[in-house]
Design a protein around this nucleic acid. Sequence first.
DNA 1: CTGAAAGCGCTTACAG
DNA 2: CTGAAAGCGCTTACAG
Lengths: 355, 355
Amino acid sequence: MDSGIKRPGVTSSEVARRAGVSQSAVSRTFTPGASIAPKTRAKVLAAAKELGYRPNAIARSLITNKSRIIAVVMAYLENLFYPDVLEELGRQLAAQNYRLLLFTGSMARDSDPVFDQIMQYRVDGIILASTSLSSELSEECAAAGIPVVLFNRTTERDAVSSVTTRNREGGRRIGEFLLAGGHRRFGYIAGLETSSTNRDRYAGFAEALAEGGHTDIAIGTGNYSRADAEAAAREMLALPDRPDALFVANDHMAVAVMDVARYEFGLSIPQDLSIVGYDDVGPARWTSYGITTMSQPLKRMVDATVDILMEQISSGEIEAEHRILSGELVVRTSARVPESGVVEIDGRRVFKPKG
Amino acid sequence: MDSGIKRPGVTSSEVARRAGVSQSAVSRTFTPGASIAPKTRAKVLAAAKELGYRPNAIARSLITNKSRIIAVVMAYLENLFYPDVLEELGRQLAAQNYRLLLFTGSMARDSDPVFDQIMQYRVDGIILASTSLSSELSEECAAAGIPVVLFNRTTERDAVSSVTTRNREGGRRIGEFLLAGGHRRFGYIAGLETSSTNRDRYAGFAEALAEGGHTDIAIGTGNYSRADAEAAAREMLALPDRPDALFVANDHMAVAVMDVARYEFGLSIPQDLSIVGYDDVGPARWTSYGITTMSQPLKRMVDATVDILMEQISSGEIEAEHRILSGELVVRTSARVPESGVVEIDGRRVFKPKG
DNA sequence: CTGAAAGCGCTTACAG
DNA sequence: CTGAAAGCGCTTACAG
């Protein structure tokens, strides 16, 4: 048994020489579905093993014009929702035999240089989470035949697909829940004001409250960041007529807001203040927080994302597709629980009015 | 001004034709340092812009034998420490003009298929965080001339570099801190028992306690996972003679342990029970937890990792290098504070005995 | 400074 | 089923 140590440059030609076959035969051995005699194949495989040969994916990409690489652009990982998404994406892309090229951090905010990289590597698809895309860039991708999917964002752009949840309905549901809980003064800590998720969640929330006769909503801006959410909470909770019910646009901020309410204002949750979040991310489930929150079905969202990508890659047709999934209002301890409408499904409590 | 839309296959030859120069000239225009006349360069650049040309990184890789891709293998992102690391790695690699190919999740645990991918893509370097590497694979990388750096792990393997912090000293420091706080019964919630970090942290902790005359340490195993840590805490806190001081091998588990102690056992922290963690990750700083913890200097650890990689890539010499950095015991509210030894540095409280 | 040419390691018609 | 050959889009000696 040889050790299988690979010297820097083992090529298919070397394997061919060793196996006494042509270089084409070596290539066919490593191409699923190529026509090759079992005997030849065995010889090649043996030689390959001896030399520690592995096909060069770079050379293969050059000729097939497929890199089997998907670019994932994720501006910030601070919110655990995104690492969770990343992990699931990694799993599913690997299962489809695709690799994941990650672009994060500050560089991801200014999309131009990132897109230069993406185009240079001739990725087969692009997933944009927590980032948007300028119209020129998205058109450029479409023109180049590269499918783009927005994750948890949406846009009017023609060529860009998206996967989201019913944010507006989610916002409505939260409004109904807080109304049913008998709250009287409402507040909203917003996410990034330019994001579609934030707009939709707020719109639904305001709608529901208006139907309940409440048009006065205190608004603070958290920009989906902890520090901004804390500042917004401080301001809002210092109000003479402070809200007794707060919808915070995601759990990541809700955690920070709860700490401010409890430890800086001495408020009891939910007795003095009800807080509802969005996402149902890890810390929402931790006992210290127990956040009542609209869940986003992460796994199904990733399923849909990968599905759209695979479909567009294999068909070569880039037609924008918008998948919209539903979440549930998971009831925990951070908000007063209404008398009715809360049911237990699969071991968790969920708010389903008129059910 | 042209729109710059890129058709699928703009190549250097097409740009050359358009600019009225040779294909070599186009290549030189996009190769930093190549000898090209400013005038020629300008013509090429103009033509490239008109056609929306970008050099094909795949083709370039094939001939230069450098992919400018670094593989990052990160088994699990659940612990926020790792997303933080990932973000910083992304930033620093981008600054050095390298791309980051991410391998996560379950597939990362079984290293063989992952390594097959890594080798096929001819990555220029490999960073392993929260994963180890079998001896054959590390030797194979070394033989292939691919530098490997273990992040927050170490190993005896010859060819594999590592970046860690002084885990043993950290464990000692924590032991000293808890002794100075006047605790009498000690417990340890371990991480993965096979990991070097866990071994070293425990060894230092036990050493310090032994010097203080305590050789009896209650031990539970949390495997760096929340669920396991919770189970271990339940068991340990139900002990007739339960510890009044707990060292939990990382903050990720410490958060879970605190919730169990408070909400399942009704314990006050730190009055009934002191808890010290490790890492100084996000939630440790949240007011609900305020974990006293050994910090790991994440940015400097990433600096060191990238530094080792860049050095080995440019020199072509793979000689294992082990960088060991120091953290500090950051004092917050989860553990009783000793009378002396706690000093304030740069606005944070730190335990520095005999200082 | 420039262009013609070789070649990186593969895949894939093509002819047998 | 197999091999010889062309070619993917570049970089880089080489000669001028």
